[in-house]
Design a protein around this nucleic acid. Structure first.
Lengths: 210, 210
DNA sequence: CCTTTCAGTGAACATCCGTACACCGAAAAG
DNA sequence: CTTTTCGGTGTACGGATGTTCACTGAAAGG
């Protein structure tokens, strides 16, 4: 067990593992996980096909690793959003802005999630679903701290959080498919997303008074 | 040009064409359009691989035909919903009920749309997007006829319609993935969908007063 | 009745696929 | 220094894939 200046064996292994994940993310963004070819993947990485199995027992396992990786990136976005404006009234604007920014900078992660959420292998679909539910739970506890909403039941908060998460997921997917050469399309998507959030908030504020 | 009791040539062709669409719908529901194999498809139909090209120039064209077919089924659902309760206050309950019922009876169509909306070939994705936009437009004109909403701008109505359509699409996808042996899960999804629609309606009713 | 049309056939092609297997060479362990 | 571990290699396999091409036979057209 010697830690020299050069690369240790574990480090090398981890490096190729990450290279596989990188290449897989690119390929899956184009063709989907179900159509992923082991040979093309390993060719892109620069290793021989059989070497793949030194890192993953199956393509499904690769898919689960990609889910972990993608949602780790997403979680970072959420942390950023939460930290940003705790009480600022422009929370809607800034939240949508952060979302859009992350969709662009981490495009492949979002593409992967969008593609596989209902597209691919059942086990991957289920993993994504579980992660999104986790998000909803977190969002629900955040919402509970807001004024006007502190009297809501946990279930109603979850319902509202679900609505918000779905709207934001749809927004992200719309942005992904927006033509890059026409920025006004994206601006329209952003405006729609902001309006929808505002609509939900207004609905929430007047919920119990009906 | 003779119309005997037996089958005419056009009829036979149309029959195999429909058989191809049927088989494709089943296969795509399991593996996705990108992973669809021409040979397995034609084997399922009972024809030779090359015969496929007598009906479709490419797999993409098949995909577009499937989009048409699926949305034709969806449109029928919408018509049923619209006809049902024009002014009945339980319109939310009955709309969700009709949606759920159709998701079950036309499961493969919904599966196809859910899978390919963000999953597959770009041209198919685009076609689905266009059809959903059409839905939003129709829904927006329906909403315009409601009291309290007749003063809304066309754009705001579109925004609201978009939110509703996305919520209903998400609901449909949740139902598709719900375990059939646990009906209480589906009941929970239905309750959530109803609450979300109510939340949106309440938000809309109080929109301009803020 | 003869000709044309055309949905479906069947063989052949080059190519890609996943995986089994024995093997190598360097790092790690002793 | 010797042994073990283990990423990565290279070959080989049987099988599936999309598309080509010339064909058949019955229905449609004249």
């Amino acid at each position: 067990m010697e830690s020299t200046a050069a690369e240790t064996r574990q480090e090398r292994k981890e490096r190729t593992r990450q290279a596989i994940l990188d290449a897989a993310l690119d390929l899956v963004a184009e063709e989907g996980l179900a159509a992923l070819s082991l040979r093309r993947l390993t060719r892109a990485v620069g290793i021989v096909p059989t070497a793949f199995y030194r890192h993953f027992a199956s393509v499904d396992e690769l898919g689960l690793a990609l889910v972990d990786r993608s949602f780790a990136s997403l979680r970072q976005m959420i942390r950023e959003t939460r930290r940003g404006n705790p009480e600022f009234s422009g929370v809607i604007r800034s939240s949508v802005s952060i979302l859009v920014q992350h969709v662009h900078s981490e495009r492949t992660y979002f593409r992967f999630i969008a593609r596989e959420r209902f597209g691919g292998v059942p086990v991957v679909r289920q993993a994504i679903r579980r992660e999104l539910e986790l998000f909803e739970r977190e969002l629900a506890t955040d919402l509970a701290r807001l004024p006007d909403l502190d009297t809501w039941t946990a279930e109603d908060l979850r319902v509202m959080a679900n609505l918000i998460v779905n709207a934001m997921v749809s927004t992200a997917e719309d942005i992904l498919d927006a033509p890059p050469e026409r920025p006004e399309v994206e601006r329209e998507i952003v405006r729609t997303a902001e309006k929808q959030l505002r609509l939900i908030v207004v609905g929430a504020a007047n919920w119990r008074s009906t």
